[in-house]
Design a protein around this nucleic acid. Structure first.
Length: 939
DNA sequence: CACTCCCGCCAGGGA
DNA sequence: TCCCTGGCGGGAGTG
């Protein structure tokens, strides 16, 4: 394709005056340059040109395996043939030219035209389909799924330019990542769910919902007021919302680096636009976004002033490009929205439902090279961290997300960096980590930052959470306490920090720090998870709610209540492409627009109210279920605080609390929401969720965050890692069913009955921790400090295996609770053996090594913890296996269920269900991270 | 005519 | 300097 590009350029020179387009209709000119020829050939039938030429064509191109296939295809398809010819043209333009001439000569105008592929046949969407067909949705990790743009363009017989369009959109979804020039890595949909979650989070942060509402409001006003000036004013206002927002590309942990190389270019508008476009869908309740609205919002972010038509038009064009690709991905579907003003093109989200998952976790927008900092290295200075994170000059690998700016500021104000991140061990499980080498440093810095942040706020956490009263920390050696900080949104100077940190980039080589923001109180904990495959973020809330993010990348779980995000829109009639008409009468909503908007502005208040309502709701639920636990006392206090954190993001919501009631499960609390969301996303079978049998539950660690209270007072809902559940699709029905599901009861030998709502399956129940409540006392400080899994630990030199996020969480939990020594790593992933923490590892919680056998037993019995080393003692050794390896015995799946019900996202049944298409692969992949039943050997 | 969106010119910038 | 990238908008195709 290089040639193409070149040829194109050259050709332009020669035939610039002669529009290639014209060439299509017009006979090819001898003088036409290769470029023009190319165009002609492409569009014109190349019947004359023989397939053989194609073979010959790739002179310089490596003979690809697909060549034969292409030839065959071309033989069968005139269009393809043409494209092939075109391709061939690149190399042997003259020959093609001749052929073309011949063709033209022999064909009449009509015939010639007929021979040309129709416009539709050349659509980007179709091209994208072809492109996607080349790669598996869920490629096996570790496989080298590389994409050579030249080859692809060649094989698809399209200009490389078109491939860029596709790749850029795919890149925005992290389905591909750029490895090098002309080379991309194919990730398939493995990261899709994470990406979507992240995007949703970012979208919520950006208040896209509000923007949409404002735009709609404006339109609404226009309809009735017809006040042009006013409209413009409104428009400006609307746009103004984004004025400050900067274009940024949301990165996923582990993906940044590669993307970075691409980011050299300032404008990645297509990528950014794509992400934002997706965000719009994710944040809006009727997940229907009209092009007009999308364009306005996108323009608003770029240039508020430039609302001129041309710009708008251009945006629309680009949106079409993006939409075509997204449509090919089956993430959206074209529909038409009929409003008062008329019928407008729009797109409806048809992709997996995305939950705003983990609270406080944020997508790392862009991370530049990090200086690797391991324990031995001096702690990175704040400046350095900032610098690395947000390089101001040179090649900024990634565009930084606004939230990161906040982080930087926070860091600035907060100088103390407590502990250096653990040295990451390089564990590349994916074929994409070629550039991982640079990650460690970044991660380290991020970790340092997070730690710092956490530490600073830890004191606050202590005060807020009176966990100490309930829990005494016998675990807590000073070091054991990872820098954790409490984040109280209300008081925290940098409330945003939590969110900023939310998602940290994961590198295969390093541990990723994960912010565990307290839902409301803002107490956040950071857990350093091994970024490598799992990419799971864990949230640790003061109330001891552990949540694992599907991936670290996942944006924090803003409480964006999906239900809440009701888009203000007039009566909306959506005509789906297939002719189905979807009516969404939200007119009533319009009436409240003003009010709602006002509310939005006065977010704090509304938040409080909501918070209270939520709290009440939670309490009620608890009571309802008769749940009693230590967590209650603590939990409540904690819960009370949650609202605040939530408030940060709730401003977008204008929906009345009652409305939310419908989605009660989602409203319970952020954690729960996450869980719920995950569940839904994962396509958790309704029946399954309803199933009382925990073991059958696809989701390990399923616990009703709100309801399942453990004696110990630890409420540890852990969201499943949704890594593999990208494709989960839950029908509305299913969702509803889930939401409405009656709480399932799970028996915990120790704790007793733990009612769990099906929708909350994602929550993790860690009965083991509750076994000896009194023994597991956690001092406030310890609580505040989230155990950080040292990267070294995670990557303990013994193994290359990637730490499963769930395992990280497990370790964290166990260590934190003192169930296991800090030095012991329990791998949630059966594949990953428990790995002794490297002595070098710093920041590892020094958990009392003395874990009484009872606990272990309890764990064994109760939590069904997978084999692991407790106290560095026995643990059924499990052959280390690359988690990435997809092929897994089905048994693993079963095991998974039993295992602690850990959030091993990947291995959940749900995830399986979510892979309708590639069930095989999905399944395999799922198996990849088998959850083992924890068999703790009594010593 | 409006909507779509293909096509490829051309500039930025990395190698 | 080469040429990879990708913004951008003209204008063709479609309904």
């Amino acid at each position: 394709m290089d040639r193409c590009g070149v040829a194109g350029t050259e050709g332009k020179e020669n035939c610039s005056s002669e529009p290639c387009k014209s060439t299509l209709k017009t006979p090819l000119k001898q003088s036409a340059t290769s470029h023009s020829v190319l165009g002609e050939i492409q569009s014109n039938s190349g019947p004359l040109t023989t397939p053989p030429k194609l073979k010959e064509i790739p002179l310089g191109d490596p003979w690809t395996p697909t060549t034969n296939l292409k030839i065959l295809i071309s033989a069968a398809s005139p269009e393809i043939r043409n494209r092939e010819q075109k391709k061939g043209l690149q190399d042997s333009g003259s020959e093609i030219l001749e052929a073309k001439h011949c063709l033209q000569e022999h064909l009449s105008g009509d015939e010639y035209e007929k021979s040309q592929p129709s416009r539709k046949e050349k659509s980007l969407g179709l091209l994208c389909h072809k492109f996607l067909a080349r790669y598996p949705n869920y490629p096996i990790t570790g496989d080298s799924n590389y994409i050579c743009l030249d080859e692809v363009a060649e094989e698809l017989t399209v200009e490389r330019r078109r491939i860029y369009d596709i790749v850029n959109v795919l890149e925005s979804l992290h389905m591909v990542s750029r490895l090098a020039k002309n080379r991309y890595a194919w990730h398939g949909r493995h990261n899709l769910s994470k990406t979507l979650q992240t995007l949703k989070k970012v979208g919520e942060d950006n208040k896209y919902m509000q923007q949409i509402q404002l735009i709609k409001k404006r339109e609404y006003e226009n309809e009735f007021e017809l006040d042009g000036e006013k409209n413009e004013e409104t428009a400006t206002k609307t746009i103004g919302i984004n004025e400050h927002s900067e274009m940024c590309f949301v990165e996923l942990p582990g993906m940044e680096f590669r993307a970075a190389s691409v980011n050299s270019r300032k404008d990645k508008s297509l990528r950014v636009m794509s992400q934002k476009f997706v965000m719009l869908f994710l944040v809006s309740t009727p997940q229907i976004v009209s092009l007009e609205v999308a364009a306005k919002i996108l323009i608003g972010e770029d240039h508020v002033e430039d609302l001129d038509k041309s710009k708008f038009k251009t945006k629309i064009r680009r949106l079409y490009d993006i939409a075509n690709v997204l449509s090919s991905l089956e993430l959206i579907k074209k529909v038409h929205v009929t409003e008062e003003r008329g019928r407008k093109p729009a797109f409806k989200w048809t992709g997996p439902e995305v939950l705003s998952d983990i609270q406080g976790t944020k997508p790392v927008s862009t991370v530049s090279t990090f200086i690797q900092s391991n324990s031995a290295e001096p702690k990175p200075s704040k400046e350095q961290c900032s610098k690395n994170l947000f390089p101001t000059r040179g090649k900024q690998i990634f565009t930084r997300h606004p939230s990161l700016m906040k982080l930087v500021k926070t860091i600035e104000s907060d100088r103390r960096i407590h502990s250096a991140p653990t040295s990451p061990v390089k564990t590349s499980t994916t074929g994409c980590d070629q550039n991982s080498s640079t990650f460690p440093s970044k991660m380290a810095q991020l970790a340092a930052i997070c730690k710092q942040q956490l530490e600073d706020q830890s004191s606050e956490l202590k005060m807020r959470t009176k966990l100490s009263s309930n829990l005494e920390c016998n675990l807590a050696a000073p070091e054991s306490i990872l820098k954790s900080e409490t984040y109280t949104t209300s008081t925290s100077p940098n409330p945003s920090l939590v969110h900023s940190l939310g998602v940290l980039p994961l590198s295969h080589n390093s541990v990723s720090p994960v912010m565990l923001p307290h839902p409301h109180a803002g107490v956040s904990y950071t857990i350093y998870l091994h970024p490598s495959q799992a990419q799971t973020a864990t949230t640790y809330s003061p109330n001891f709610v552990l949540q694992s993010l599907p991936c670290t990348n996942v944006t924090g779980v803003k409480t964006a209540l999906e239900a809440n995000s009701k888009v203000l829109c007039g009566k909306m009639i959506t005509e789906e492409g297939d002719g189905n008409v979807v009516k969404d009468d939200t007119r009533n909503f319009l009436n409240a627009k003003e009010t709602k908007i006002t509310k939005i502005e006065s977010t704090p208040r509304s938040f409080l109210k909501r918070s209270q309502a939520l709290q009440e709701n939670n309490l009620i639920k608890k009571c309802k279920h008769g749940q009693k636990s230590l967590g209650v006392s603590m939990g409540e206090s904690v819960k009370n605080e949650r609202p605040s954190s939530r408030a940060l993001h709730m401003d977008t919501e204008v929906v009345s609390f009652q409305e939310r009631g419908q989605i009660e499960c989602e409203n319970l609390d952020q954690n729960m929401e996450c869980c719920c969301d995950k569940e839904r996303r994962e396509g958790f079978p309704e029946d399954q969720s309803k199933t009382n049998n925990t073991q059958e539950r696809p989701v390990p660690f399923a616990v009703h965050a709100h309801e399942a209270l453990f004696p110990s007072g630890y409420l540890i809902p852990i969201a499943r890692c949704t890594q593999h559940s990208n494709e989960t699709t839950f029908s509305n029905k299913e969702k509803a069913g889930i939401c409405s599901l009656q709480p399932a009861t799970y028996n915990s030998p120790i704790t007793g009955v733990i009612p769990v709502t099906a929708s909350e399956l994602t929550a993790v129940n860690i009965p083991a921790f509750h076994v000896t409540p009194m023994n597991i006392m956690v001092s406030p400080s310890s609580i505040a400090a989230a155990p950080v899994v040292n990267s070294s630990c995670l990557n303990s030199g013994h193994t290359n295996s990637v730490q499963n996020p769930s395992s990280s969480i497990l370790n964290f939990t166990l260590q934190h609770l003192g169930l296991i020594p800090a030095s012991v790593q329990v791998s949630a992933n059966p594949v990953l053996q428990s790995v002794p923490i490297s002595p070098k590892a710093e920041h590892v919680n020094m958990v009392s090594e003395n874990v009484n056998s009872q606990r272990e037993k309890v764990l064994k019995n109760e939590s069904q913890i997978p084999d692991c080393e407790l106290n560095g003692k026995s643990v059924a050794a499990i052959p280390l296996q690359q988690p990435s390896v997809p092929a897994k015995p089905k048994e693993s799946q079963v095991v998974t269920e039993n295992f602690f019900r850990t959030p091993g996202g990947p291995n959940t049944i749900a995830s399986l269900s979510s892979f309708p298409e590639n069930s095989d692969r999905a399944f395999q992949r799922t198996l990849t991270i088998p959850q083992r039943k924890l068999e703790v050997s009594d010593d």
